[in-house]
Design a binder for these strands. Structure first.
Lengths: 337, 337
DNA sequence: GTGGAGAATGGGAGGGCTTCCAAGATTCTT
DNA sequence: AAGAATCTTGGAAGCCCTCCCATTCTCCAC
């Protein structure tokens, strides 16, 4: 920080000199490449240890044109998206898997137009070797940004529209079907649903699973109302459903937050859960366990989602061509059904 | 990715050639430095636009010896620390403030020994211009790692022991004092506390605030039990307190999770809250609102914590010498008191 | 018209590493 | 024991910018 005599960072030349070898040899030892005699290898390693040398990553990056960094880009169209524990778990999974590939994680939250421009520059400047992207909407401008980058991109969850080439997603259809079938197996016959936004793939998929289950059981789809994955929207949807479909006896909500909202409205309307109405959510977040009554829901392997995204990206960076992955979810039965 | 003819990334020379100027001039335009005529500036800018040129960040980093990246290092001694919304908010704050300084965010979760070694290498390789660090324990090995790095380090929350030179922290003492005084103002006279781990600064500070409040009110400190900030430990501590101090009428828990555990135990013991016993927590996480009854607690400006950390780091990187910051917290009164 | 201040310009030397290649050292064949 | 085959080795060319500095140009004062 502006000392009198900046002590001039240690360089590979100094290591080489101290070990009595050329810079080339020293470099080979560092990258443990072949064609180095045992004696010189030892000498270099000792010099590295004695001097406490760590190679300058910028120079290495320039020479190899590899930065050793992967970016996770999170589109924040809504304000508090990161606040839910979902991303935290994804990140933990990613972090662990990137460690395997010896990559570091750069986290980009792009909300403003300016932020998006920064992300674009980041990707196109070659500062990262690959990108993981979480975006809900097919028209998210970040998707185009990622396309323009000439670096591999893995999606976490498919945005709507034509699916990207590489993605990891939860099998939302199967999960929603299992949830609905569970309601039917409890003897419910008038099962309604609170869907997520239908312009998102996840919203659509969970709705599809619901309809499939009814279809397979030979039942007609009942009323559905759309929410936006918030508790408040779930409550509002539930009110509307009660109004139009007073004899409902089962509710599949497309996520736990909305299910929690629905529970409150049901309680307020004097319907007891699970006696009068059974309710199932989706996600298995903390809110599901804390709900009154505790919520039956579909558990997603969120951490695995992160892990698999990172693994896929590592494979891509390594020149391989992995296939998309759909992760299974499973039902967790609690007191609401 | 291994094409036949890798199209050889665009370079500044090509921009310069197209604009009919030397590379030096082109570079000056890119960094909008002075000493460029209007005409050439325009020519270069047009060439940049036409070609879609983005400077190679690795080369720039090497030349300027600035990476444009700041790291957030989170020590994960316990497994699910990131899962609480705390870090999510810190990160959002950091991200916003880093954008001001045109820095990108690298996220390092170091739990294993290997992960720690990787972080050390990252810092010492000069890959980041500065570090923000969140660590609870004074003996966290990461603190030494940060010391060895010759890059500026800002702490979020002081670890125990001698405080670091640069940090941003919540004023835990004042918050705890306010919480305790609130209990006293409700007429409680036998106020006990559930502390956090006393080998952490935050644990100690909140305990100190509790004692100060009692002292100022001319009361003696009552029983205290120590937890580890988990709900389970709060419940256990509450049981012990009920046993040794059956006439207690107020509880200050050093965080919301432990307060939630305490509430459950109190309910189980037939003490009603807030009639028989008043309870105050600390943090104002979601759990405080969801608790039964809703928890009076101390709200912390968590997002601001992140913002200020990042700002401080930006200042340090810019060669300034900022002062440590203590952020105020405030009481949120709900139904538990 | 001349000197000189100050701006504009481009050449070129880094920045610290990787990697190609030619040359020297070693081992293996027969 | 000579020649082929294989390892080791170090010199030097890159990677793509930034920035110092010597040079040229512009313009104004006297």
């Amino acid at each position: 920080m502006g000392n009198a005599l900046p002590p001039r960072r240690l360089t590979l030349d100094q290591v080489a000199e101290r070990a009595g070898v050329s810079r080339s040899v020293a470099s080979r030892v560092l990258n443990n490449a072949p064609h180095v005699s045992r004696a010189k290898r030892d000498a270099v390693e000792r010099a590295v240890r004695d001097l406490g040398f760590v190679a300058n990553s910028k120079a290495r990056a320039l020479a190899t044109s590899q930065s050793g960094v992967a970016a996770l880009v999170i589109s924040r169209q809504d304000p508090s998206i990161l606040a839910d524990p979902f991303y935290a778990q994804v990140i933990v999974g990613i972090s662990a898997a990137l460690e395997e590939g010896d990559l570091h994680l750069m986290l980009c939250l792009a909300e403003s137009e300016r932020g998006r421009a920064r992300v674009e520059k980041l990707l196109r400047s070659g500062a990262v070797d690959g990108v993981m992207m979480m975006a809900l909407h097919a028209d998210d401008p970040l998707i185009k940004v990622a396309d323009k980058a000439s670096t591999p991109v893995v999606f976490g969850g498919r945005p709507g529209g034509t699916p990207p080439q590489w993605y990891v997603d939860i099998d939302n259809v199967a999960g929603a079907r299992a949830a609905t079938e569970h309601l039917l197996s409890r003897g419910r016959r008038n099962v309604v649903t609170i869907t997520g936004p239908l312009d998102t793939e996840v919203g659509q998929a969970r709705h599809r699973g619901y309809r499939e289950a009814l279809l397979l059981a030979g039942l007609k789809a009942r009323a559905s109302e759309t929410g936006d994955f918030t508790e408040a929207s779930g409550a509002a949807a539930m009110s509307r459903l009660l109004e139009h479909q007073p004899d409902l006896d089962g509710v599949f909500a497309a996520n736990d937050n909305m299910a929690a909202g629905a529970l409150k409205v049901l309680r307020g309307a004097g319907r007891s859960v699970p006696e009068d109405v059974s309710v199932v959510g989706f996600d298995d977040l903390a809110v599901a366990q804390n709900a009154q009554p505790a919520l039956t829901t579909v558990h997603q392997p969120i951490r695995d989602l992160g892990t698999e995204m990172a693994r896929m990206l590592v494979a891509l960076i390594g020149g391989k061509n992995p296939s998309p992955i759909l992760l299974p979810s499973h039902l967790v039965v609690r007191s609401s059904t």
